[in-house]
Design a protein around this nucleic acid. Structure first.
Lengths: 150, 150
DNA sequence: TGGTAATAGTTAGCTCTGCTAACTATTATG
DNA sequence: CATAATAGTTAGCAGAGCTAACTATTACCA
């Protein structure tokens, strides 16, 4: 990728390219900590949604995590197998499955997520407050524009 | 995750957590475009390093991409199979394998990468220049701190 | 009311990515 | 020259994600 002049406005394509690379590399670096927390990135992410998003259907969870239902079935089964979430049948609609977090799930999320981001958090500690603000702002912008990207 | 007051300095753990989520969701959103470009994220990323980082050994490529040698062997084989990179034996050291991009590789990178980030780039187009600057800055910060994170 | 259509999940089967362990081949070293 | 170190590869595994096809349930409507 050609480097634009620092003073120039960043062309969207260049910014997109760099964000993309940064996201790939960031996740690869963090993935190593999965072993420590015992949860992979997708599982941790799904568990997080369940814990903070309250009980929700499998389909809603799949939509929130932007994966297909079969993928979420698989993830939920794994989480259920570890006792981190529980299924519950809908009292009215027999097709629907509700997923809720268990106490253990909330516990593991807190620990695992902390472990997982600890490495990154430690690195961030060494940054200036301005840099941290930039990163936080970027994360917010990304989450804001993602829904409209489909 | 608790939301800190907007005016407060962002605690590293919170920023780390948000960055993590944003990276996961961003990549999931972009992955859909892989089909369009014909290259997956890891292949595109590796090809990018080869194209812009000149010929380099398989080991160096693995290190640059932060994966283990067997993983890179596999990626290179796939890229080689599509005629995007080529292997070359080292004239002096018989153990070493040099990987270089082919003309087709450079071509496909330009097109594929463009396609892949086009969706994101289009979304970025709708942002303010300030937001784009924030994102570009964040990407730079991330790439800067990653090597020290091991 | 009863048959068809739509919806929610699951199962089956595939690809890709990534790992570790174990191996080969080559080079360096004591 | 024998041994150790290095560079890659092979083998075999698990996880994540997909599509297609299936089951079970609910909704609709003629």
């Amino acid at each position: 990728m050609p480097r634009p002049r620092a003073s120039a406005g960043q062309p969207p394509a260049v910014v997109a390219d760099r964000l993309h690379s940064a996201a790939i590399h960031l996740l690869r670096a963090l993935r190593r900590r999965d072993v420590a927390s015992g949860l992979s990135a997708p599982r941790l992410s799904a568990l997080s949604v369940v814990v903070f998003g309250g009980p929700l259907t499998l389909g809603a969870l799949a939509a929130a995590e932007q994966v297909r239902p079969p993928t979420m079935t698989h993830l939920v089964r794994a989480l259920e197998g570890e006792g981190l979430v529980a299924r519950a049948a809908d009292p009215v609609d027999g097709r629907v499955v509700h997923v809720r977090a268990t106490a253990k799930g909330r516990d593991v999320l807190a620990r695992g997520r902390a472990l997982r981001v600890a490495l990154l958090a430690r690195a961030l500690t060494r940054l200036s407050r301005a840099d941290r603000t930039t990163l936080a702002g970027a994360a917010a912008i990304i989450e804001r524009i993602l829904p409209g990207m489909q």
